[in-house]
């Protein structure tokens, strides 16, 4: 498993590129959704696939109720993106995205609309962050349709098809904040062990352009 460990230089470069990627993502997001957004400096962590639930429990505030959006991204960089939004932020997001004008919504459909608004925010935020990182490192990924996760991530496992049991995973976490709407949430990009190996190669390739 030694080849999946990062050297100090690789770690530093990875952190720097993630800062750049998330910085660009924030700037472009402001353009795309017409609303300023803050993304914190990403926190990078390696952990064992089977420790996802422990990892998430440590990272998330146990007191707060979350809605979780999940979306898979597939490329050389591949894994699952998890977006945690405060459970009751759907209403604010509906107006933010102007979805209330879509149709005449009865109250029973309002819950669905709020859910769709959260999924929509998830799709764009995840697309922005994954897109910028992979663009910097010269990869192009495909996305599954985002969906609301029903299982509590704090007591479930990563999907076996992407994350072999016993393998390593890498988590990139950022805290995002829509200033005008006062909505704060967390975004986790969790990539599998193959992605870690690819990241090492891509980081070296990135440095080579400066030689």
């Amino acid at each position: 498993m030694s080849e999946t460990r990062f050297s100090a230089t690789e770690k530093d470069l990875l952190q720097e590129l993630m800062n750049i990627g998330f910085g660009q993502a924030a700037a472009d997001l402001a353009q795309v959704i017409g609303l300023s957004i803050k993304l914190s400096i990403p926190d990078i962590q390696l952990f064992k696939t089977c420790e996802l639930s422990r990892h998430m429990t440590e990272e998330m505030d146990g007191e707060q109720e979350f809605s979780l959006i999940e979306q898979y991204f597939l490329g050389k960089f591949q894994g699952i993106a998890l977006l945690a939004l405060p459970a009751r932020s759907g209403k604010k997001l509906v107006t933010l995205f102007g979805l209330q004008d879509q149709c005449n919504w009865s109250s029973e459909n309002l819950a669905m609309l709020e859910k769709e608004a959260m999924i929509e925010v998830g799709n764009i935020l995840i697309g922005a962050c994954v897109g910028k990182i992979t663009e910097l490192l010269n990869d192009v990924v495909l996305y599954s349709p985002p969906r609301m996760r029903i299982q509590d991530v704090r007591d479930s496992n990563l999907p076996n098809n992407l994350f072999a049991p016993g393998s390593l995973a890498i988590s990139l976490k950022t805290v995002f904040h829509f200033e005008r709407k006062k909505i704060t949430g967390q975004l986790f990009l969790i990539a599998n062990q193959d992605s870690i190996a690819w990241l090492k190669t891509a980081l070296n390739a990135f440095m080579e352009q400066y030689e």
Partner: peptide, 27 residues
């Protein structure tokens, strides 16, 4: 020509991501 469709177009051009228009929401 409405905000939601335009936003998704901008998003795809900017980030190269995908946008999904579900039947449930959009018909």
């Amino acid at each position: 020509n409405e905000p939601n469709f335009l936003r998704n177009c901008r998003s795809v051009f900017t980030f190269g991501n995908f946008a999904f228009f579900s039947q449930k929401l959009h018909r």
